[in-house]
């Protein structure tokens, strides 16, 4: 089965073609990051306007790169939520209508299911069950994945997502938007002994997170010190260490509580080297395996939607000729295959 996948839930337009026999045939991404940077954050209306300009040309290009004609496509999958409703609606409208015109089945995919299943696109996919740590600008979650559609959230952030905390702290440090990667960069020059930031919610049981306090702690530290290059680097390092340590502590707990010794890390923050090094050490200690999908599959992309959609279409899921975009969509209401 060959499936066209469309992702437009936030500020990236992603289109991919996945074939259940031959694997990923094309995978294209248009990022709006530069446009939103001028506004200091994602502007939903502008994101929607850009998707409607970029999506159809990207679909044409993805078909061309995959050497695929319309007759060779067996179904269309698009992200139906959660995300920015206006942005989602562009992908849903084009994807659903194209499938209708081609008389093909279509399916709306849960964005986070895409992320959870993305590691399956790699050569040595992790076996079920696994614990997924999903860390991005929009999410911080620990989820047990027993199979397709069998997800249980065992921990999540009660306030800011960890990527959001990275970006907001970076903004405080004048590193622009989105500043997470820049923060990681200057942290390499930091003195790790100068400041110690708290590890939020690690002193009590449970797997939930809270990251908004770290950002505030960074602000107070910045105001209490003379602002020099070195101070900024030291704060960046202290913040990063605290965030990474907090994630690692909760991952360790999740492994011990569930007895599941396979960890998968997804989302944009999984690119952070300090996090990877820390989780590698944790895995060694816990005799667990940890897998990181390639960065391209960690951030938003069409490939994960094409893949998840393919599994669902193969299982016989079908939609009426209507489409829907959901700002919220609880993970536990996704149907199990």
């Amino acid at each position: 089965m060959r499936v066209l996948g469309i992702e437009t839930s936030c500020d990236e337009t992603g289109v991919a073609i996945y074939d259940s026999e031959r694997g990923l045939l094309s995978d294209l991404l248009y990022s709006q990051v530069a446009m939103h940077a001028e506004y200091g954050g994602v502007v939903p209306e502008l994101a929607s306007r850009d998707h409607v300009r970029k999506l159809l040309p990207l679909i044409r290009e993805a078909m061309q790169q995959a050497d695929t004609t319309r007759e060779q496509i067996d179904g269309i999958a698009y992200t139906a939520g959660p995300g920015l409703v206006g942005a989602l609606l562009v992908g849903a409208a084009i994807g659903r209508s194209l499938a209708w015109g081609w008389n093909l089945p279509a399916v709306g995919v849960h964005h986070l299911e895409g992320h959870l299943l993305a590691p399956m696109l790699e050569e040595n996919p992790p076996p079920f069950p696994f614990i997924a740590l999903l860390v991005s600008g929009g999410h911080t979650m620990l989820i047990t994945v027993e199979g397709v559609g069998r997800y249980q959230i065992i921990g999540e952030s009660l306030d800011d997502a960890v990527g959001e905390a990275f970006d907001k702290t970076a903004k405080l440090l004048d590193l622009g938007y989105p500043g997470g990667p820049a923060l990681e960069q200057i942290a390499t020059k930091g003195d790790g002994t100068r400041f110690r930031f708290p590890r939020p919610m690690t002193g009590r049981p449970g797997l939930d997170f809270s990251f908004s306090g770290l950002k505030t702690f960074a602000m107070n530290t910045l105001h209490a010190n003379e602002i020099t290059e070195q101070t900024r680097a030291d704060i960046a390092l202290a913040f990063q260490t605290a965030a990474v340590e907090t994630l690692a502590i909760k991952c360790q707990r999740a492994i011990r509580e569930t007895g599941i010794k396979q960890l998968v890390v997804a989302g944009g923050v999984s690119a952070n080297r300090a996090l990877r090094e820390r989780l590698d050490r944790l895995a060694l200690k816990e005799r667990a395996q940890v897998a990181y999908p390639r960065l391209k599959f960690c951030t938003d992309n069409g490939a994960m939607i094409a893949y998840a959609g393919c599994l669902r279409l193969q299982a016989g899921e079908r939609e009426p000729p209507a489409f829907e975009a959901r700002a919220r969509w609880p993970m536990d209401t996704v149907t199990a295959l």
Partner: peptide, 8 residues
Amino acid sequence: GVVQGVAF
């Protein structure tokens, strides 16, 4: 979106 999908 609908007209793009249908026309394409």
